[in-house]
């Protein structure tokens, strides 16, 4: 059987999606039989991009010129380019202050005027190249990663979940954290498929799998405010993984000691 040539790359992020792949300890031997991780600098010494790839899984957001160069290079050489995880799909948690010039944010942290490394606003991969498939989640579910690789060998892409986290919750007969416990649970907005991982442990969903299809934000906002959550609190928590919640301009304070 043909082994798929795969590139695994990380742009700006926490490496959690690549780590989740490495965390598939039981499945790794089988994965290695079917796929050749020919470029995987986090786990292997080779750093040259050689030849064509059947798939490139790219983790992290786009925020540096070097990252952009690597991404374009991978796009050119790969049949399938996959946005691997929330940062790659939507920019991720570090895109929450893209309303403020980078220089201004950088000054708070580094003092000087120049942004170290010339970094720019965290952006999704699709802002620069064509993306063929999204593996969502922060981090993604192992099952989603494995499903992608199974599909790759079979020549098909997985069908993304069309349900909400709420549906997963109902299937597990969880009590509703929003309606019954008055917690700010974002399951009503969020793409399912994680088996309601967080609410099943009594922790409200933070929306890490991103927006579900056919989401009604206005209605969700109404439900949240009816439960006593302020618009600020909703947009803060919602803004982690939903661009739709981010204010255009939001005041924030400088961090001078006094």
């Amino acid at each position: 059987m043909k082994r798929e040539r795969v590139a695994i790359a990380g742009l700006t992020g926490c490496s959690g999606c690549q780590l989740t792949l490495l965390d598939c300890e039981d499945e790794l031997p089988l994965l290695l039989k079917n796929a050749d991780f020919d470029y995987f600098p986090m786990a292997s010494s080779g750093i040259a991009l050689k030849g064509e790839y059947d798939a490139a899984l790219v983790e992290g957001c786009l925020s540096t010129q070097e990252g952009l160069k690597l991404l374009r290079n991978l796009r050119e050489k790969s049949r399938l380019l996959v946005a691997f995880g929330a940062c790659a799909v939507s920019g991720g948690v570090t895109a929450i202050r893209n309303d403020v010039p980078r220089e201004e944010l950088s000054r708070i942290v580094y003092g000087g005027d120049a942004v170290p490394g010339g970094g720019f606003e965290p952006a999704p991969l699709a802002s620069a190249v064509k993306v063929d498939f999204d593996i969502t989640g922060c981090p993604p579910e192992k099952a989603d990663i494995l499903e992608f690789f199974a599909g790759l060998s079979a020549g098909v892409l997985p069908i993304p979940a069309r349900t909400f986290v709420c549906a997963d919750c109902r299937a597990r007969e969880n009590i509703c954290l929003l309606a019954e416990k008055g917690e700010l649970c974002l399951g009503v907005l969020t793409r399912g498929g994680c088996n309601a991982r967080c609410p099943s442990m009594n922790v409200p969903c933070e929306g890490c799998r991103g927006v579900a299809e056919e989401t009604n934000f206005a209605e969700a906002m109404a439900i949240f405010s009816a439960n006593g959550f302020s618009a600020d609190r909703i947009s803060e928590k919602g803004g982690r993984f939903f661009r739709e919640f981010l204010h255009e301009k939001k005041e924030y304070q400088k961090t001078d000691p006094d």
């Binding site: 742009l11 999606c17 925020s63 980078r102 708070i108 490394g117 970094g119 961090t255």
Partner: peptide, 28 residues
Amino acid sequence: SEGVRLFEALLAGRSFHEVPDMVCRICS
């Protein structure tokens, strides 16, 4: 040469509720 995400600046002005869930994203 890792890209700067400026976590400390991202947190400024956010409620304490946000801090632990945000900062764990610094590194997997």
